Simulated assay, not measured.
Amino acid sequence: MRWEGISEFVCVAEYESFTQGAKTLGISTAQVSRQISALEQRLNIKLLYRTTRRVSLTEEGRVFYQHCRGVLDGLDAAEQAVSNLQSKPQGKIKLTAPVTYGEQQLLPLINDFMVQYQDIEVSAFLSNQKIDLIEGGYDLAIRIGKLNDSTMMAKKLSQRTNFVCAAPAYLDRYGIPTALNDLSQHNCLLGTRDYWHFIDTDPRVSEDAGKEKNLRVSGTVQYNSGYSLVDAALKGLGIVQLPDYYVQKYLASGELVSLLDDYREPKENIWAVYPHNRHLSPKIRLLVDYLAEQLV
Rank of each mutant, 00 (worst) to 15 (best):
E4P: 02
I6F: 00
F18V: 00
F18W: 04
A22Y: 05
T24R: 13
T24W: 09
S28K: 13
V32P: 01
Q35K: 15
I36E: 02
A38C: 09
E40H: 08
Q41T: 03
Y49F: 09
R54H: 08
G61F: 04
G61H: 05
V63N: 14
H67S: 08
H67A: 10
R69M: 01
G70V: 01
G70K: 12
G70T: 05
L72C: 07
L72H: 01
D73Q: 06
D76A: 15
D76R: 15
E79D: 13
Q80V: 09
A81Q: 14
A81L: 12
N84F: 10
K88M: 12
K92E: 12
I93Q: 09
P98F: 05
Q104S: 12
L106V: 02
L109S: 07
L109G: 08
I110P: 01
F113R: 04
M114H: 00
V115T: 15
V122A: 03
S123C: 09
S127H: 11
D132E: 10
G136N: 12
R143E: 04
R143P: 00
N148R: 04
D149Q: 01
M152Y: 07
M152H: 06
S158A: 13
R160M: 15
R160W: 03
V164L: 15
C165W: 04
A169Q: 15
R173A: 15
R173H: 11
A179K: 04
D182C: 07
L183F: 05
S184P: 13
L189Q: 00
D200A: 07
T201K: 00
V205D: 01
V205P: 08
S206L: 06
S206T: 14
E207H: 15
R216F: 03
R216W: 03
Q222F: 04
Q222C: 02
N224W: 07
G226W: 00
Y227D: 12
L229T: 02
G236M: 11
G238K: 05
Q248D: 14
K249S: 12
E255N: 03
S258C: 13
S258I: 09
L259A: 02
L260Y: 03
D262V: 10
R264C: 03
K267T: 00
I270C: 03
V273H: 11
N277C: 11
V288S: 07
E293G: 03
